[in-house]
Amino acid sequence: MRLKKLAILTLSLSSLYATSAFSQEESATARQIIDKFQTELIHVMKDGKKLGYAGRYEKLEPAVVNSHDLPKIARIVVGKEGEKLTEEQQKKLAEVFTRISVASYAHNFKDFSGEEFVIDSEEETKNGGVVIHSHLNIPDDKPVKFDYMLKEKGASWRIINIIANGVSDLALKRSEYTAILQRDGFDALISQINEKIDNYAKQ
């Protein structure tokens, strides 16, 4: 009887631990999201040459998708032009935007020469977001400042914008995407994004 109680207690504790571990994964803080993402980036950089572009893409894909709110970013970067898109076009844009986001990481973080990410501080914004201030130390070079802007999504946080040395990725993409949409149309935008993805894969 005593053994049965012990077994039940052990089972309950195990399931409690499992639930707790799951909720920890689900309810990560903004800082934890950035820390995990940067750690994965450094891992991929260390194995960058061995992995090749395809290997880096494969490793970074879940890391990027689980730390960025890509559907929301894709919606923001097309601005008001997004309202004019059909359902099919919206799906297509969300798809290629995810691919170019992962591809640009796989292309730009390809090798390692002693780089190190350091989280400096954390600030809350007036509109309920969080900014994680960090920098990348590069041996024999100036550090690059990375400020991550995150918004709450469910019980966790997701990156909406990255500001590298003062240049906002979101603002940059929005200017480009809306300019191309207005001037050349949706198909041209998709075609240019696909071209960039192909170039990233070749280089």
């Binding site: 914004t125 977001g129 909406i160 906002s168 929005r174």
Partner: peptide, 9 residues
Amino acid sequence: VNMDDDLMS
């Protein structure tokens, strides 16, 4: 950093 980024808002 502009903490109240227009795009974030």
